[in-house]
Amino acid sequence: MSESQITLEQPAAMDVLGASGPRLRHTVRRFLHSNWASWLVPAALLALWQLAAQLGVLPANVLPAPSEVVAAAWRLGANGELAAHIAISAKRAAIGLLIGGGLALAFGLVNGVSRIGERLTDTTFQMIRNIPNLAMVPLVILWFGIEDSARIFLVALGVFFPIYINTYHGIRNVDPHLVEMGRSYGMSRSELLARVILPGALPSIFVGLRYALGIMWLTLIVAETIAANAGIGYMAMSAREFMQLDVVVLSILLYAALGKLADSVARLLERATLQWHPAFQRVTKEG
């Protein structure tokens, strides 16, 4: 690569006025190194999709054009319906994550630190973990009816295990040498937890959180298509009945966008709290 660069750029460097070639190449290279580059492929796919729909390659009753989906979003956005559905879905996701994630963190912490806690509860968790949470749907409907609590329960159940397991393992894998060091300098149990054990487990907890966010949306999609009366999943199901394909596609895209948003927030949090970690450092090592 370097050789071809040299041969291509040498004559261009002398040609000051007609330097559009290398300048373009330079711009392209800068773009490819920027954060925007990660949106290149999605944008290209979108353009391809629009083109295929307009040329009639993609029939409208299979997949509507992106422009129609945007129009549907505009329509539903204008009368406030879209915002209401998003708000309800986001609320369910957040409450489920808070309950499931909170419990997972607490149990992961207790079982990571105490052998007794682990002996009492870990086997149970490992058994329940092997049941796909969506297999619980019939049972959950019987327990909670078709109320919101049923959907929140499913989300909480789904997010519990990735966070629990990663918290537990994160804590178990904290360098015992550091714990011994802390103890030798007279740290109390709570101090050890706050200054040594939790910070050490944090990278692993974040891995769990990001897994959990994926499961959170997955669970919600299914849960909202079953007997809901609001939310993005409900919007998709009712649109299907009226053959509003654009709204169906819009709902699917909304899940993608919300999923990406949640992941980005988690990444930001990760970057803010794991500054010390070499993987998250932007400062380069001194020679």
Partner: peptide, 21 residues
Amino acid sequence: FQEPRLLPWARVIDNVEVGLG
């Protein structure tokens, strides 16, 4: 210790302050 055993998530000065208990 044989290894430095510094807390990687604490800045150098905060690691020294560990010694203050």
